[in-house]
């Protein structure tokens, strides 16, 4: 494996790990979305690096798949952002657990 593929391979793994770490430790929905997108970016990088075709032309199939993936990622993010806005409207919160508590309180009353 050539050195530059090695660099991108490690970057991909590290970015995925950073995204996962952020996703697990963060409570704000918006930041969790950013982290999911980071993880996605890491996976895309991994796919393209592995399909790099060290000798010969680059493999177009992973490239097409990642292109599809980028569009799916933006679709999912846009939908999640719409959900977030609705969530905020309902519970006045941008975190996941706070609204659950608020709901529990209204039921108690």
């Amino acid at each position: 494996m050539n050195p530059s593929a090695l660099i991108y391979l490690l970057t991909a793994a590290i970015v995925f790990g950073i995204g996962l770490h952020g996703l697990l430790q963060s409570r704000q929905i918006l930041r969790q979305l950013l982290c999911i997108n980071l993880m996605g970016g890491g996976i895309f990088l991994l796919l393209i690096t592995l399909g790099g075709g060290a000798d010969g032309p680059p493999d177009p199939v992973p490239q097409a798949m990642v292109l599809t993936g980028i569009v799916i990622a933006v679709s999912a993010t846009a939908f999640a952002l719409a959900l977030l806005l609705r969530w905020h409207e309902l519970g006045d919160s941008t975190e996941l657990d706070a609204v659950a508590n608020a709901d529990a309180n209204t039921h108690d009353e």
Binding site: M1, A13, F16, G17, L20, H21, L24
Partner: peptide, 21 residues
């Protein structure tokens, strides 16, 4: 919260990197 998630994430990084190599 931070340390275990960082630990788990680093472990995953090592595994992904190792497998990919």
């Amino acid at each position: 919260l931070t340390l275990p998630t960082a630990g788990a994430a680093s472990l995953l990084v090592v595994i992904i990197g190792w497998v990919a190599l």
